[in-house]
């Protein structure tokens, strides 16, 4: 079996790596957060606390897998599976390096957006099936937030698609080899995509659906054990996915000077964005729910539409 796009080996390695990285992010996030907060973070288990993840995993696997008696059992179990599935599916169109990837899809960008929309179902099902007022509130917030931000998330990357003339992510990367990183012409698109990406993966500061202080833990209040673990890892997978997409769409994917292999360039870029997301968490407080919606619809949507309009005008006028 050879290591090429779409080979079984490639799929296996990507799957394993992505999940492993997502899991390791638990440790990375805690360490980084603590550095920014002048603490040490988890450093007792293994060297530098690296095995903390293992300890957490052992804990989470051995915890009682409890389904509340009042919950709707089928959808309660289904919900965490959906989030894992859709995010892992999204990774299939990501070009990690020239030869590394699962598929080269002509509709890569659309596929990612479609999968992100499906993610909303997971959250809604979790909240509804829990039969708990906090979970329900969380689910409602999550649904509204995800559907809203999906709109301008899509619109914000249309500029990139227009510039490269393709929905194929691998071709978008290759297009940047010639045109330079799209972050320069599409800076507004990048900023909007970054913000919408954070909101899509309900990371801080946009973790309104699971705001501990207000609504306990939102839609996953009733979850415990491995089902909770799936939501947890799902969130980190989403983080990796958004970071990968930014890298691919705006920062030239694996492209970089040749002294490092492409996959390393890709990883480095992804890591920088992940670190940036963690920094956001450490620094920026959570807005109110209505502020989030106002900001989205009254600022980001017009801005992204304007960005697309200007991009279109420029493309038409130059060609």
């Amino acid at each position: 079996m050879t290591f090429e796009v779409g080979s079984g080996l490639s799929i296996g390695v990507i799957l394993a790596t992505v999940i492993l990285v997502a899991a390791m992010l638990i440790w990375v996030e805690r360490r980084l957060l603590s550095f920014w907060q002048e603490r040490l973070g988890p450093n007792r288990v293994g060297p530098f606390g690296l095995l903390q993840v293992v300890a957490d995993m052992i804990k989470i696997f051995t915890k009682e897998d409890w389904v509340p008696p009042f919950a709707d059992k089928f959808s309660f179990v289904l919900a965490p599976a959906i989030i894992m599935t859709v995010i892992l599916m999204s990774f299939s169109v990501i070009p990690f390096a020239p030869d590394v990837g699962v598929v080269d899809s002509n509709i890569g960008v659309l596929f990612v957006l479609a999968m992100a929309s499906l993610g909303a179902y997971s959250v809604m099902l979790a909240g509804l099936s829990s039969d708990n007022k906090y979970a329900l509130l969380g689910a409602l917030r999550a649904a509204a937030q995800m559907i809203s931000y999906e709109v301008f998330m899509g619109i914000s990357i249309l500029g990139v698609v227009a510039l490269s003339g393709t929905f194929n992510l691998r071709e978008i990367v290759l297009a940047q080899e010639e045109n330079g990183w799209y972050v320069i012409p599409q800076f507004i698109g990048f900023v909007i995509f970054l913000i919408a990406g954070v909101a899509e993966s309900h990371r801080l500061p946009f973790d309104i659906p699971e705001a501990e202080q207000e609504i306990c833990a939102g839609y996953h209040t009733e979850y415990s054990g491995m089902k909770f673990g799936m939501f947890f890892v799902g969130e980190y997978l989403g983080l990796v996915l958004i970071a990968s997409l930014i890298t691919v769409l705006f920062f030239g994917g694996w492209l970089g000077p040749a002294f490092l292999p492409p996959i390393v360039w890709f990883s480095l870029k992804v890591f920088v964005f992940i670190a940036f997301f963690i920094l956001l968490r450490a620094a920026i407080p959570r807005p109110r729910y209505d502020q989030l919606m106002t900001y989205g619809w009254l600022f980001l949507l017009p801005a992204s539409l304007l960005n697309l309009l200007i991009t279109g005008v420029i493309i038409l006028s130059t060609s």
Partner: peptide
């Protein structure tokens, strides 16, 4: 926002208060 981000980021070089 940017200043906030920078301020928090700059704590990377400050010694941790934690007593082990």
């Amino acid at each position: 926002q940017v200043v906030t981000l920078w301020r928090v980021f700059s704590h990377l070089w400050v010694k941790a208060d934690t007593v082990e």
